[in-house]
Design a protein around this nucleic acid. Structure first.
Lengths: 150, 150
DNA sequence: GAGCAATACTTGCACATGCAAGTAAGCCGC
DNA sequence: GCGGCTTACTTGCATGTGCAAGTATTGCTC
């Protein structure tokens, strides 16, 4: 087994590998972020996306894409973070249907605190994954990945 | 950007890529399986795992690992599938705490029907992903992946 | 073989999510 | 500038999930 399988089998196995790796990393991040900052992975993703955004604001829809969440889940996610004082909703002047979200000072501070812990957890998770023979090749591919320079 | 970033940035970007790819594939499979077989991705994963198992039975805990779900979610997942007549619970004789699950005839039939549709959807999703430059390298790595032969 | 910790599943409860329907604002043709 | 279609967000509702506590069974120690 492992040689003569058709492309279909290879793809299916690849997908199972991907799902396993994703699950492993997410679980580790979830644990680390919950403990250190009372954040879930999606919540961290929001802070991260906002902080990597020029001017630190982003529309709901962009946020929905960045988190791979539905529009309704995004609404409630933003509401949760707003209630905790980590970000604010700002109406956009140009298109009054749209709503920008911006990190507050508190949000930026929490992000700065959570960021290194997130990265450590990610490194740990990838380390664990590399020790599993089925996962190792994908982990290496991920780390080598070069972003197209233009 | 893309060259001089530290290992930390590379890992973080790799993780975002992985998450995006995972989300894309899962969404496509979810759509296809719901339409064709009224199955969610996890539900399909159960049928798939059971059908690839010798003797077609598996303990709850193995199932929990295969689906990356908690024990309680697994209980309810199995209950749902049992209620639909796709599998049955069988007490194990050796260890009476354990419970085996087995595909019923109906379950096997549904799996045979869903299997090719799942694989087509997966191929479609990977095709889409390959057309996105950020995702393409990982997709290729997945498909090339060779399982250790021993 | 009695007691007790560990393991395998189940159940109560709180909560995050998606879908579909609702509201509000832009856009377009006439 | 008035209908009508589209887009951006929000809300009601049903459902799947995790955590913690509960039950049953095993295995270990004395």
């Amino acid at each position: 087994m492992g040689i003569a399988d058709g492309a279909v089998e290879i793809r299916a196995r690849g997908w199972r590998t991907l799902a396993a790796l994703h699950g492993l990393i997410e679980a580790e991040l979830e644990r680390a972020l919950a403990e250190s900052a009372k954040l879930s992975v999606v919540e961290y993703t929001v802070l991260d996306a906002l902080s990597r955004q020029d001017g630190w604001h982003m529309r709901m829809q962009q946020l929905a894409r960045a988190t791979a969440l539905s529009a309704s889940a995004t609404t409630r996610l933003v509401t949760r973070l707003e209630d905790r004082g980590l970000l604010t909703r700002v109406l956009c002047a140009e298109d009054r249907r749209g709503i920008y979200t911006e990190l507050t000072e508190t949000g930026q501070e929490l992000y700065r605190r959570a960021h290194p812990l997130h990265d450590e957890a990610l490194e740990r998770a990838l380390g664990q994954a590399e020790r599993r023979p089925e996962l190792a090749p994908v982990v290496r591919a991920l780390q080598q990945e070069i972003v197209p320079t233009r």
